[in-house]
Computed example of a mutant assay.
Amino acid sequence: MSVHGDSLRQLLRPLRVYELEGSVNGAELDAQGETLDLIEGVLEEIQREMLVCTAEGRGLEAIESLLARRPVTDRLEERRAALAALLRIGGDSFTLKAINDNLKGCGINAVAGETDTPGKVTVHFPNVPGIPDGIEEMKAIIESILPAHVLIEYVYWYVTWALMEEKFDTWGDIEAIGPTWEELEKMVI
């Protein structure tokens, strides 16, 4: 028996007019109840998928199909946040705070900063030594967020001997671990 079929029986029982069990009336209520159960499931899915903050599949795909750029992450919560950030981009999204909020929301570990030169900003990648993985995709998203007339200077940083000396006392400490240069860069952060 269906949940809605039981509800229909509860509604009709006080009338004492219908034979609700083992009859044509009961079978009809069961059929209608099963259909209502199916409809409820579909409506719950539609309700979930229509909001960015609760969507899990089709809703996120539908929103992504409307946008020129896709989030750089596949994890559900980060994907939702990235889509929300991409949807917020508008005519008033060009303050430094709004730009950085949009970058963060898109799942990009980047920070935009002002320079002394009008019409020029820097974008750096904190806690990411060297050139980040997926930089071309990140650049495309960053350049779609920032106004077209703004010159963007990408700033990368690399591990220095001073940073390594802060982290390790001797070369022997480094050799004992045996990291590759890429692993060493990440340890120094």
Rank of each mutant, 00 (worst) to 15 (best):
V3H: 13
H4M: 06
S7E: 12
L8A: 06
R9G: 04
Q10V: 01
L12I: 07
R13F: 01
P14S: 12
L15G: 13
R16K: 14
Y18A: 14
E19M: 04
E21H: 11
E21T: 15
E21N: 12
V24D: 05
N25W: 07
A27F: 10
A27Y: 02
E28C: 12
A31W: 00
Q32G: 05
G33P: 15
E34S: 12
T35N: 03
L36V: 08
D37Y: 04
L38E: 11
I39Q: 08
E40Q: 15
E40M: 08
E40D: 15
G41R: 15
V42A: 15
L43G: 02
E44C: 09
E44W: 02
M50K: 09
C53A: 13
T54K: 01
A55K: 02
A55N: 07
R58E: 12
L60K: 01
I63V: 15
I63N: 00
E64H: 06
E64A: 06
S65R: 15
L67K: 11
A68Q: 11
R69W: 05
P71Q: 07
V72R: 01
V72S: 10
D74I: 11
R75H: 11
L76I: 06
E77V: 07
E77W: 01
E78H: 05
R80E: 00
R80C: 04
A81M: 01
A84Q: 13
L87Q: 13
G90I: 00
D92M: 06
D92P: 00
D92C: 08
D92S: 11
S93A: 13
S93L: 02
T95H: 09
K97N: 06
K97F: 08
K97L: 09
N100S: 01
N100A: 10
N100H: 04
D101P: 00
D101Y: 00
N102K: 02
G105T: 04
G107Y: 01
G107C: 05
N109I: 09
A110G: 10
V111T: 09
A112C: 14
A112L: 04
T115R: 13
D116L: 15
K120Y: 02
V121H: 03
H124W: 03
F125P: 10
F125D: 09
N127F: 13
V128F: 09
V128M: 08
G130I: 08
I131G: 10
I131R: 15
D133H: 13
G134F: 09
I135V: 07
E136R: 12
K139A: 05
A140Y: 04
I141S: 06
I141A: 02
I142P: 01
E143Y: 02
S144M: 02
L146C: 11
P147V: 07
V150G: 05
V150R: 03
V150L: 15
I152G: 10
Y154T: 03
Y154P: 05
Y154A: 10
W157C: 05
W157K: 11
T160Q: 12
T160P: 11
W161M: 12
L163P: 02
L163W: 13
E166R: 14
F168S: 01
F168M: 12
D169W: 03
T170Y: 03
T170I: 01
W171V: 07
I174C: 15
I177H: 03
I177C: 05
I177R: 04
I177M: 03
P179F: 11
W181C: 10
W181H: 09
L184F: 13
L184Y: 06
E185D: 13
E185M: 07
E185R: 13
I189L: 14
